[in-house]
Amino acid sequence: MKWYEYIIMIIAIGLVILPFVLNHLNKKKGKSTCGCGCDKCSANCPMHKRIDDKEN
């Protein structure tokens, strides 16, 4: 394999791993994890508190 083929392969593997990395980073930051931007699944959503309280 030539050197640029290795680079293409690394980029391709990186693109496959990218969604998992972004998901993990977004979760850590408390942001929405599906990319929809509605923030409804983020840690900021005050509805979480209501559900947690209810379950307690």
Partner: peptide, 20 residues
């Protein structure tokens, strides 16, 4: 908003699935 969401998905999850 819809386009942004679509582009985000296309550049991440969908691209990953296509390569796989």
């Amino acid at each position: 908003e819809k386009l942004k969401h679509f582009l985000y998905k296309a550049s991440t999850i969908i691209t990953a699935a296509i390569i796989l």
